[in-house]
Amino acid sequence: MSETATPKVGTKTACLLVIGNEILSGRTQDANIRAVAVALGAAGIRLDEVRVIPDVAETIISTLNTCRAHFDMVLTTGGIGPTHDDITAPCVARAFGVPLERHDETFRLLEATFAPGTFNTARQRMAMLPKGSIPIPNDVSAAPGFSIGNVHVMAGVPRIMRAMLRSLVPTLPGGAPLAMASWHSDTLREGDLADALSAVQDEFPALDLGSYPYERPDGRRGVALVAKGFDSEQVRRAGARLRTVIEGLGAVPIEGEPPA
């Protein structure tokens, strides 16, 4: 696979921290990265990096401080529930050098959600946010994520994370949405296209150009060429060049992604 690019000047960048021992051990498969990437791309924000880190306080704090200094924004998933290993909120507080304190509005919302006598100490922990945080609401559960500075903390449970993402993304500073052009051929292989694709990349250094081989159950095998970027006109032009690359090799270009 070939995929290199330089971000367009002015495009906001983001890093996603996936926090959880269960991801690293293989017990749980992450189901959030693609949703975050798609949502950010549609908002004109480039997801430049994803890091998967354990539920270890010093690792979370050091990684968060490194990333929030390097990227325009950092999103996190995981570690904001009621159990002993849900340590993301206190770690974010330590990273920012602020106390963890009860967020009264969140406390009242949670208290009203649970049946009388069940809003125990563990559940009350979900109302403890770093001082100065702004809650990220969701329409699935009463427990919010939160934003502080350029850091946005969300749940790891996919259904809840997506609800928080829907609330968060419209508030983020973005730009033109990610544009994409794609052509494929059922008769070519990556090796046939490598040199020509490198030449097109040189023409459009601000775009992501990728070649993606595919093989389908019915025996069809080929390669898809994709141009992506936040300048729709450049993407359109690059897409036209990808089509001519396929034609120049004597194959029939088919627009779009290959059917599953």
Results as ranks from 00 to 15, higher is better:
1 M>G: 11
2 S>E: 15
6 T>D: 12
6 T>Q: 14
7 P>T: 13
9 V>E: 12
9 V>F: 02
14 A>L: 10
16 L>Y: 02
23 I>A: 05
25 S>I: 09
25 S>C: 02
27 R>S: 03
28 T>L: 15
30 D>R: 07
30 D>T: 13
34 R>E: 15
41 G>M: 04
46 R>Y: 02
47 L>V: 11
49 E>Q: 09
50 V>Q: 06
50 V>C: 07
52 V>Y: 05
53 I>E: 06
54 P>M: 14
54 P>T: 15
57 A>D: 11
57 A>L: 06
58 E>V: 12
60 I>M: 01
64 L>Y: 01
65 N>H: 03
67 C>T: 06
71 F>A: 06
72 D>W: 02
74 V>I: 11
75 L>M: 11
78 G>N: 07
79 G>I: 09
80 I>Y: 00
80 I>E: 02
83 T>W: 06
84 H>M: 11
85 D>M: 09
86 D>A: 07
90 P>R: 11
90 P>Y: 10
93 A>C: 04
95 A>D: 10
96 F>N: 05
99 P>I: 14
99 P>S: 12
99 P>T: 14
101 E>M: 10
103 H>G: 04
108 R>K: 14
109 L>G: 02
111 E>R: 09
114 F>Q: 12
114 F>I: 13
115 A>W: 01
115 A>C: 03
116 P>K: 06
117 G>E: 14
118 T>M: 13
119 F>A: 12
119 F>H: 07
122 A>F: 12
122 A>V: 11
125 R>G: 07
125 R>C: 08
127 A>Q: 05
131 K>Y: 09
132 G>Y: 04
132 G>C: 08
133 S>N: 10
135 P>F: 07
136 I>P: 00
136 I>C: 01
137 P>M: 10
139 D>M: 08
140 V>Q: 07
142 A>W: 05
143 A>V: 08
148 I>S: 02
148 I>F: 04
158 P>E: 08
159 R>W: 04
161 M>G: 02
162 R>P: 02
163 A>P: 01
163 A>L: 05
163 A>I: 07
167 S>Q: 13
167 S>W: 05
170 P>L: 13
171 T>H: 02
171 T>L: 10
171 T>V: 04
174 G>S: 10
175 G>M: 04
178 L>S: 00
178 L>G: 00
178 L>I: 01
180 M>G: 00
182 S>A: 14
185 S>Q: 08
187 T>V: 14
187 T>N: 10
190 E>H: 05
191 G>M: 13
194 A>T: 14
195 D>R: 11
200 V>N: 03
200 V>M: 08
201 Q>A: 15
202 D>M: 13
203 E>N: 08
203 E>S: 13
203 E>K: 15
204 F>S: 12
205 P>W: 03
207 L>C: 10
210 G>H: 08
210 G>I: 15
212 Y>N: 07
219 G>W: 12
221 R>F: 11
223 V>D: 03
224 A>V: 13
225 L>A: 12
225 L>P: 01
231 D>T: 00
233 E>F: 01
233 E>C: 01
233 E>T: 04
235 V>A: 00
236 R>P: 00
237 R>L: 12
240 A>G: 06
240 A>Q: 10
243 R>E: 15
244 T>N: 04
245 V>A: 04
249 L>H: 07
253 P>M: 06
258 P>K: 07
259 P>L: 14
260 A>I: 09
